[in-house]
């Protein structure tokens, strides 16, 4: 028992510094959702149904621009595709868990829980602490996300439009974009997608974002291929 609590705590403590960056993100989501006219209940429950910050912001952003719903769905899912990659890296470490642990563990996959766990798993670790460490980080993040989005929703109605807080949405994406550019090829992927997005912004149904993202992925992929 002591070992479980210890691992749970270690996970939560390791993710704590990252949580400081999650709080403003959650606040901005809550404010943006309220300003987009999304009801408080749906805005709040989205944090547990979808539980993915960037996708939640995209949904709110596209709803505010009256985008077509199939486009919102596909765009949000493409934003979340990266979590398949996290799952692929975590899968060998989760391989011995029972089905229910895997189901709940999968629901809790986030950029942050993935990042701290995969770094910790590089050092040798027994099966049980591995699991509790992951849940310590993942559940801490879930709780902070729920609390900060709830606060943002409550604040949303009180913030005047003249503050232009909707600008915080692209700024948040910028803060996530910069660390995702790790080398020449990811830089080319970002540039390709950025240029495409500038050119396709008038595309109907807001299809420009998804089109540009796919163009960027292909640019990165073929840039990498051309190096070999």
């Amino acid at each position: 028992m002591g070992q479980r609590i210890q691992s749970l705590r270690a996970g939560a403590l390791d993710v704590a510094p990252i949580l400081l960056g999650v709080v403003p993100f959650g606040l901005i989501y809550g404010v943006a959702a309220t300003e987009a006219g999304l009801g408080s209940l749906s805005a709040f429950l989205m944090s547990s149904i979808v539980f993915a910050g960037a996708a939640q912001l995209v949904i709110v952003d596209l709803l505010a621009q009256n985008a077509a719903w199939p486009v919102i769905l596909v765009t949000a899912l493409v934003i979340n595709l990266r979590m398949a990659m996290y799952g692929a890296s975590l899968a060998p470490h989760f391989a011995h868990w029972s089905p229910w642990w895997k189901r709940v563990g999968a629901y809790l996959v986030t950029d942050q829980a993935f990042a701290v766990s995969i770094i910790r798993y590089e050092k040798p670790m027994a099966e049980l602490p591995k699991r509790w460490y992951y849940f310590g980080a993942a559940v801490a993040l879930w709780l902070v996300w729920q609390c900060s989005t709830m606060t943002g929703i409550a604040l949303g109605a009180t913030i005047p439009a003249s503050w232009e807080l909707d600008f915080a949405v692209p700024l948040t994406f910028m803060a996530l974009l910069v660390p995702s550019i790790k080398d020449r090829n990811s830089m080319l992927a970002a540039l390709g997608a950025g240029v495409a997005a500038a050119l396709t912004s008038t595309m109907i149904f807001k299809l420009g974002i998804i089109t540009s993202a796919l163009i960027g992925v292909l640019v990165g992929y073929f840039a990498e291929g051309s190096e070999r």
Binding site: A54, L81, N185, G194, A213, I215, V217
Partner: peptide, 11 residues
């Protein structure tokens, strides 16, 4: 390449 591409397309 999904994260840099998708985020740039949003920014």
């Amino acid at each position: 390449y999904v994260p840099p591409a998708a985020l740039a397309a949003l920014v």
